[in-house]
């Protein structure tokens, strides 16, 4: 194992409905800025985090049109995290659970994501400095 830490995260939640993804994104951001190697295994609803067909919308409650609101989507944040990791000498390897993708029709992910299986989670975990499983509730 190299001296640079490698962290694996297993996540299960979709983009917006709970606080867990916010915290996980913050953790990945810190690790990416440090240039760590990061593996993400997206299980269940988490396969929608990098879904390419996400679209921004206006927010009438805020009184903003779509451009004024300019709210980043989870797919944009993941793409930005991949760039940040790379710019700092690390890598963010995002694996979507293939069966979960099929069940949900979430095949259309942003560039840089790949399809995998639970074996990928185990192999990543075995080769990592540490693994954090973020269970859903």
């Amino acid at each position: 194992m190299s001296s640079k830490p490698t962290l694996t995260f297993s996540i299960m939640d979709g983009p917006f409905e709970q606080a867990r993804i916010t915290t996980v994104m913050r953790l990945i951001d810190i690790a990416a800025r440090r240039g760590y190697n990061i593996n993400v295994f997206a299980y269940e609803g988490a396969v929608y985090l990098p879904f390419a067909k996400q679209a921004k919308h206006a927010n009438a409650v805020h009184g903003h049109d779509v451009d004024q609101e300019d709210h980043p989507l989870s797919k944009d944040w993941i793409a930005a995290l991949m760039k940040t990791a790379q710019a700092n000498g690390g890598k963010l390897d995002w694996v979507n659970c293939g069966l979960c993708v099929d069940e949900r029709g979430a095949q259309d992910s942003i560039e840089g994501c790949r399809r995998g299986s639970p074996a990928d989670l185990w192999n990543s975990a075995s080769a990592s400095t540490n693994t954090l499983v973020v269970g859903t509730r």
């Binding site: 299960m12 269940e44 069966l99 299986s117 074996a119 989670l121 185990w122 269970g135």
Partner: peptide
């Protein structure tokens, strides 16, 4: 109603199958 029944139990089976 998800095919994996309980996803934590299911992935435990799947990872065991992968040598975990």
């Amino acid at each position: 109603i998800e095919e994996q029944d309980d996803p934590a139990v299911w992935i435990t089976h799947a990872m065991k199958g992968a040598g975990a």
